Simulated assay, not measured.
Amino acid sequence: MDSHPASGSEDTSDLIACPKCDALYRVVEPDPRERAVCARCHTVLIAPRARAGMQLIAISLTVVILVVAATIFPFLTIHIGGAWHSSSILDAALSFRGGTFYALALTVAALIVFFPVLRALLTLYVLVPVVFDRPPARGARAAFNLSESLRPWSMAEVFAIGCAVALVKVVDLADVEFGPAFYMFSSLVILVVVQDTFLCRYSVWKALEE
C-alpha cells in the first residue's frame, strides 16, 4: 500500500520522510504483512511483521555466534605442490604488514568482522527490553541510530563476493578446501540480509518514543 503525501498541516508528529528521495508523507500504518511504500521511488517505509522482534533477537544472537566462530576456525586450506596453508578470516584481514598497511588491515577487519558484530549487539541492546515489554534501555535511541549509521559499512557480503572472485582464479592453480568458517560466513551473509529485511525501522523508532 502507498503512504499518503503530507498536506500543509502544522502537526508534524505523524510525518515520515522517505530515506532515499526525501518525500514527506502522513503516516498510515499498514496491517501486518502489508507494507507502506514511497509513491515516488517505491522505497519501503513501514513493514510491520508479527513476532518480528523475537525473530530479530534470534538472528542477532546467531550473527554474533557465527562471527566469533568464523574468526577462530579455518576459512580456506590451499594445497599446492605437496605443501598446504590454512587461513582464517582474521588472518586474511590482518595479512597486510608494514607502515600504513596496518591501518588498512584494521579497516578490513572492522568492515567484515567488528561492524557486523557491533550492529548485532546494538540490535540486541535496543530490542530485548522492547520485545519483553520493558522500558527502553538507556541510550537506546542513540544505539539504534549508531546501528543504522554502521549499516552501509558492514561489508560481510562484499567480502564474500571478493572471496568468490578470488577462488575462481585460485582453483586453476591449487586445490582449495573449504573450512568450517567458510560455511559459517556464508550463513552469516544470508542472516545479515534477512535481518535487514525483517527490521521495520519505523516500528522500532515508534516503540522507543513510546
Rank of each mutant, 00 (worst) to 15 (best):
Ala103Met: 09
Gln55Thr: 09
Gly53Ile: 03
Cys18Met: 10
Glu34Tyr: 14
Ile112Met: 12
Leu127Val: 05
Tyr25Met: 11
Val193Ala: 15
Val68Cys: 08
Ala120Pro: 05
Thr43Gly: 03
Ile161Tyr: 14
Arg138Cys: 05
Arg134His: 13
Lys206Ile: 01
Gly162Asp: 08
Glu29Gln: 15
Val28Lys: 15
Leu127Tyr: 04
Ala137Pro: 05
Ala207Tyr: 01
Val68His: 06
Ile59Val: 13
Leu167Arg: 03
Gln55Glu: 14
Asp196His: 10
Ala140Trp: 01
Ala142Gln: 12
Thr62Arg: 12
His4Pro: 00
His85Pro: 00
Pro135His: 09
Ala109Lys: 09
Ala164Leu: 13
Leu118Ile: 13
His42Gln: 15
Asp175Ile: 08
Phe178Gln: 10
Ser9Met: 12
His79Glu: 14
Gly53Pro: 05
Cys200Ile: 02
Val193Gln: 10
Phe73Ala: 10
Val158Tyr: 11
Ser87Thr: 12
Lys20Tyr: 11
Pro74Gly: 01
Leu199Pro: 02
Val204Ala: 01
Lys206Asp: 09
Gln55Cys: 08
Tyr25Glu: 10
Thr197Ala: 12
Thr197Lys: 10
Phe96Pro: 02
Lys20Glu: 13
Ala70Arg: 01
Leu45Tyr: 07
Leu208Met: 09
Arg201Trp: 03
Leu90Asn: 06
Ala120Met: 07
Arg97Ala: 12
Gln55Leu: 12
Lys169Pro: 00
Val176Pro: 00
Ala58Thr: 09
Ile16Gly: 06
Asp2Tyr: 15
Gly162Leu: 06
Ala207Asp: 08
Ala142Ser: 11
Ser203Val: 01
Pro180Asp: 00
Phe159Glu: 02
Ile190Val: 14
Ala109Tyr: 08
Pro116Arg: 04
Ser154Glu: 04
Ser95Trp: 08
Leu76Ile: 11
Pro48Ile: 03
Val170Asp: 04
Ala105Thr: 01
Ile78Trp: 06
Tyr183Ile: 03
Leu118Asn: 03
Ala58Phe: 05
Ala142Gly: 09
Ala92Lys: 10
Phe75Met: 02
Val165Arg: 07
Leu167Thr: 07
Thr12Asn: 13
His42Tyr: 11
Glu157Leu: 07
Pro180Leu: 07
Phe185Asp: 04
Asp14Trp: 10
Tyr183His: 10
Val28Tyr: 13
Ala93Pro: 00
Leu104Pro: 00
Val28Ser: 15
Ala181Phe: 04
Val131Ser: 06
Phe132Trp: 08
Trp153Leu: 15
Ala6His: 08
Pro19Asp: 10
Arg40Ala: 10
Ala181Gly: 05
Leu122Ala: 09
Ser203Gln: 09
Arg35Pro: 09
Gly53His: 06
Val64Ile: 14
Val189Gly: 06
Gly8Glu: 14
Gly98Ala: 07
Cys21Phe: 11
Asp91His: 11
Leu106Pro: 00
Arg97Gly: 07
Val192Asp: 05
Ser149Ala: 14
Cys200Leu: 04
Tyr183Trp: 15
Leu111Ala: 15
Ser147Pro: 00
Phe114Glu: 04
